[in-house]
């Protein structure tokens, strides 16, 4: 009965699902042994909620369809505005699964108690790392030399462009101080940080001496390094971290967690699963997060205040 009901569900327009959902729940309860069919909510953080929903909803529907035996009969997508928002949603149970970068997930886990679940190979990429670079003719040779200098980061929400390099700098004992403009000197002994909001701007600032360093994803650095006005040099490279991860809310039913993991980890083995993944931002597969890789993330936990502070 549940399987039949779900097949009907999939062809109903979204707005009607709520009504049907309620009535079907009543009917199901009236006629059968209670099976607690429910809605699974998947969330992410973005400033473009409409666009993100278009990307996530088909994946969520497909995943829910594969979890019918686990009592899932519907899927919903929730877009949070920031880390705190997402953490609250997870904590309240409004969101069951959260998919984002591994460092952002670290912050969310810290706030909500949610847990790492799986690694997502978004766009076929399993891991990445950041670099801090300077002009080659710069006299900055070590991270320490960055003190009293200004480093341009990408943007506050960027893992590779800010979180990872910034938290790594802090882990390395550096102190960062935000500056409002490139020409502003940071407090002594600190590394001035400014958001360029654009990789090309970051690179241009470094090339033209507006700032002394910048941090971005390694691949992006190499792209801009090719056309740099002056030769650039990598000052520091962070460890690899998982590119994208899936985490679940703290009290999500263990059996359901196992069910979700099973479905996602085996999705790439079937044609229909491959189609589902491909339509989800060209995800290659889901797998367990390698211990070592996760360790590169979790060591940054003490430095979450850098990204969580208002």
């Amino acid at each position: 009965m549940i399987a039949l009901h779900h097949s009907l569900w999939r062809i109903l327009p979204t707005k009607r699902r709520a009504v049907v959902s309620l009535s079907s729940a009543v009917v199901t309860l009236a006629l059968a042994v209670p099976s607690f069919a429910k809605t699974m909510t998947i969330g992410t953080i973005s400033t473009s909620p409409v666009e993100e929903t278009r990307v996530f909803q088909p994946f969520a529907d497909d995943l829910a369809g594969r979890l019918a035996e686990d009592g899932i009969d519907d899927a919903k997508v929730v877009i949070a505005t920031d880390i705190q928002h997402m953490a609250a949603l997870l904590k309240s149970g409004a969101v069951d699964l959260y998919i984002d970068s591994s460092v952002t997930a670290l912050a969310v886990n810290a706030l909500s108690g949610s847990q790492y679940m799986l690694r997502r190979w978004k766009k076929g990429r399993s891991q990445y790392r950041s670099v801090i670079f300077v002009r080659d003719d710069s006299d900055i040779k070590t991270l320490d030399d960055l003190k009293n200098k200004v480093i341009a980061f990408e943007e506050p929400f960027s893992t590779s462009g800010f979180m990872l390099p910034a938290m790594t700098l802090k882990r390395e004992g550096m102190k960062l101080a935000a500056v409002q403009a490139v020409h502003v000197r940071p407090p002594a002994g600190t590394i001035g940080s400014i958001m360029a909001f654009d990789n090309e701007t970051q690179s241009s600032w470094v090339e033209r001496g507006r700032v002394q360093a910048a941090a971005m994803a390694e691949e992006d650095f190499h792209t801009f390094a090719k056309t740099a006005l002056n030769p650039l040099r990598v000052l520091y490279t962070t460890p690899y971290v998982p590119y994208h991860v899936v985490i679940h809310r703290p009290d999500l039913d263990h059996k359901l967690v196992q069910g979700i993991k099973k479905v996602l980890k085996s999705a790439h083995e079937t044609q229909s699963g491959q189609s589902m993944l491909k339509n989800f931002e060209r995800t290659a597969k889901f797998d367990d997060i390698p211990e070592q890789l996760l360790g590169h993330v979790t060591v940054l936990t003490p430095f979450l205040s850098l990204i969580l502070s208002p």
Partner: peptide, 9 residues
């Protein structure tokens, strides 16, 4: 002047 490549672009 600010060399804001993003805005220029």
């Amino acid at each position: 002047y600010n060399l804001d490549i993003r805005k220029l672009r």
